[in-house]
Amino acid sequence: MGGDYCYDGSDVGLLTLLADIIPRRVEPRSIGVEQPQQKDLFTAPVTVTTDPELAERFRVELFRRLTPLSLEQLRRAWYADHPGRELMICRFLLLVWREGGRAGTMLANPHVAPFWKLAQQVGREAHRYLGFVRFRETTSGYYYASLAPDHRVLSLIAGHFADRFRDQHWVIHDLRHGEGIVYDCTRRRWLLLPMLAEGDPELTPAEETFQRLWRKYFAVLAIGERENLSLQQGKVPLKVRPWLMEFSE
């Protein structure tokens, strides 16, 4: 029991690690991303070497053991940007291995509750970004949106946008985590890729017009009698406003 574990920080790496420890019912003391420099013989954590085949087998195993709802929650927690996510996922899966599918509904269990809460947070943020993504039309023939979400929500929202905007090329760029989704409307496929920020792309003249129309429209909407800025701020936190043209200027 116990011990400190380490992996390479990738999704496949984490799956490998879980594949290694979950069936053995090991509950680690910590799970971290490996730091090449720290090679102290006594405190060195167990480093699990990424093994795509093992990871894939374990993924299939997850699909077999988890209920659809738990799978969805796992997907959300997986993309959390939270230092404890690996451990929470691990503890939850251990419970699944012990209790079976009903683990997903044991909401009062101390190992389920934090996992569940985290998954919910990510889910909520992902849902919010379905609305907060703002595309700008670039002269290169694609629509470009940038954002900086707390969690790595792109994979959770890509399907929605791929379904909705099938007849335009688009890119959604997560500046905080340095990754982006690229959608190719001729092949109708999206890919999650590492992506650096390289300044803003050049925009079309129509883009300018629509942004102005949108700002105008937005300005009209508030009914003066009912102003409630704190409610608005709860719904549209300041940190997302740089990406929303209706809040710029």
Binding site: H127, G131, F132, R166, D167, E227, L244
Partner: peptide, 19 residues
């Protein structure tokens, strides 16, 4: 083939000054 779908759960794209 075209553009758009109606999501089964509504999506808010922004909030006005009156919330």
């Amino acid at each position: 083939d075209g553009i758009g779908n109606a999501a089964s759960c509504g999506i808010c794209h922004s909030w006005t000054a009156d919330g």
